[in-house]
Computed example of a mutant assay.
Amino acid sequence: MVTEETEAAPAGKTPDGFVETGFDALPGWADDNHADALSAFLRFCRSSGTLLSKGPIRLSAERADEICKNALAAEGAGNAAARAFFEAEFVPHVIDAKGFVTGYYEPELAASRTQSGAFPAPLLKAPEGLVQITSSNRPRNWPEELSHGRQTAKGIVPLPDRPAIMAGALAEEGLDLVYLSDPVEAFFVHVQGSARLRLTDGAAMRVGYAGKTGHPYTSVARVLVNRGEGTPEQLTMTGLRKWFVDNPDRRDELLGQNRSYIFFREVEIEDPKDGPIGAAGLPLVAGRSLAVDLAHLSLGLPIFLETSLSDVKDLSDVEGLTADLRRLVIADDTGSSIKGAARGDLFVGSGLAAGRIAGDIRHAARMTVLLPKSARSERGNR
Rank of each mutant, 00 (worst) to 15 (best):
N141A: 13
D24T: 15
N258C: 10
D161R: 08
H296T: 09
R43F: 15
L328D: 03
D24G: 08
G256I: 00
L51Y: 04
Q257E: 15
Q151M: 15
A118K: 14
K373Y: 10
K373E: 11
D317M: 09
D16F: 02
F100I: 07
L52G: 02
L240V: 07
T334D: 00
D16R: 06
R327I: 07
L52F: 01
D182W: 14
T307H: 07
H93V: 05
A88P: 02
R196F: 12
G202Y: 14
S336P: 00
P127F: 01
G129I: 08
D249L: 15
R63S: 11
G117T: 14
H34I: 00
W29P: 02
L284S: 11
L299P: 06
L240W: 05
D161P: 02
D176K: 08
P302T: 03
L328V: 05
G208D: 10
D176F: 00
G287F: 05
G211R: 04
V220H: 12
D311F: 07
C45A: 10
L177M: 12
P92D: 04
T231F: 07
P92W: 08
G335C: 03
L371S: 08
L309D: 07
R46L: 11
A40V: 06
G256Y: 01
I57E: 02
I361S: 03
